[in-house]
Amino acid sequence: MTTHTIEFPYTRTLGPVIGPFLTGLRDGHVLGVRNRDGRVLVPPLEWDPATGEAIDVDFVEVGPAGTVETWAWVTEPTRKHPLDHPFAFALIRLDGADTALLHAVDAGSMDRMRTGMRVVARWKDERAGHITDLSFVPEEAA
């Protein structure tokens, strides 16, 4: 048997918006952008989804706490999910943001989840500039 390793020796830039967003996560900050109407979009986008207009890059730090707008309790996580035990996917409106971010809430039990609850970011010690550098926990548990 022979072993082959396939490599893609490319580097690429993530651009002027997602790049700083992921670098911010590495440094322990969540960044949003302000659109022309003054609304703060998180995750930040290069174009306004409502109008299609380019967004002048104006970063705003949001969170690290926020409010759960809706949630789903995952009983059996797949190997692609960010947590290996039951957790909630939630749309979280971070403090200072006008849109909600999809992320995981490590609540321990479905009984602890409810719409409107407060959650706060829990950062990994080793961060790589990746959306999974953080997850969320109920605020009272933090």
Binding site: P43, E69, A72
Partner: peptide, 20 residues
Amino acid sequence: YTLTPLGADPVSMAALQARA
């Protein structure tokens, strides 16, 4: 960058919608 790495599967996404 923000959704695929979370393994955002269709059943979970639909469940968020149903809860809302």
